[in-house]
Each structure stands twice: as structure tokens, then as C-alpha cells.
């Protein structure tokens, strides 16, 4: 599972001549789970012109995650914001779920 080691879970690939707004990030050991949810969060940003990902090959467990920004922003910025926003969303979902679950159990107990 941890063949690639913790050191290189993320790589940045930039073609010659491309500016820092056009970057393909290689996320190792990831698939649609993070790829699609992160793509959604990043696409929600005004600064992003294009965001998409592909799974390179079924027997390789990595995804190529492409971000192209509008003028002036580095591609790592929307990635960072996307990850932060996704964390924020998850925390809110977790909080809501736990609160609702507790309320449901309390209600059931009071009925029993």
C-alpha cells in the first residue's frame, strides 16, 4: 500500500514553457473518491479556468489532476483552497451528523 512512501504522495508536473498556472498534480494512491470531490470544490472557484482528473491506468493507483487558472494565480492556490474547503465541508457534515444522530438516539430512548 505504501509502496511510494509518504514522501512523494504528491508530484507537480509542468510542461516546458508553461507558467505556474497550468500544472498537472499527480496524486498517488488516490482515485475518484478524492479526485471527483476535490475537482468539484476547485471548479467552484472563480479563478479556475479548467480542472479535471484522469486515472492513468487501472493497474496504477494514481491520478493526474490538472488545474489551469485564469491570469495570475499559481495552480497550487486553488488546490490548497479546494483541500481546505473540502476539509471544512467534511467537518461540518461530521458535526451535523453527530448532532442529528445524538438527537435521534435521545428521542428513541425517551420513547422506549
Amino acid at each position: 500500500m505504501a509502496e511510494h512512501g509518504q514522501k512523494h504522495a504528491l508530484e507537480m508536473v509542468r510542461t516546458d514553457g508553461a507558467d505556474e498556472g497550468c500544472v498537472t498534480f499527480v496524486l498517488h494512491e488516490e482515485d475518484h473518491t478524492l479526485g471527483n470531490s476535490l475537482r468539484y470544490m476547485i471548479m467552484k472557484s472563480q479563478d479556475v479556468e479548467f480542472c479535471g482528473y484522469s486515472i492513468t491506468h487501472p493497474s496504477e493507483s494514481k491520478i493526474n489532476f490538472r488545474i489551469q487558472t485564469r491570469e495570475g494565480t499559481a495552480a497550487s492556490e486553488p488546490l490548497r483552497n479546494g483541500l481546505n474547503n473540502l476539509t471544512e465541508v467534511c467537518k461540518h457534515v461530521l458535526q451535523t451528523f453527530e448532532a442529528r444522530m445524538k438527537a435521534f438516539k435521545d428521542k428513541e430512548e425517551s420513547m422506549a
Binding site: A9, L10, L27, E30, T33, L34, S37, L38, S76, L79, R80, L83, N84, L86, T87, C90, K91, V93, L94, F97
Partner: peptide, 16 residues
Amino acid sequence: AINVLISKCQKFLTEL
């Protein structure tokens, strides 16, 4: 499950 997704995000934030 929600915690797993949070830790994935955190992992890549530190990686970044």
C-alpha cells in the same frame, strides 16, 4: 468515513 476524507485532505495539504 468522513474522518477518512478529512485526513486525505490534510495529507495533501502538508504534502503541498
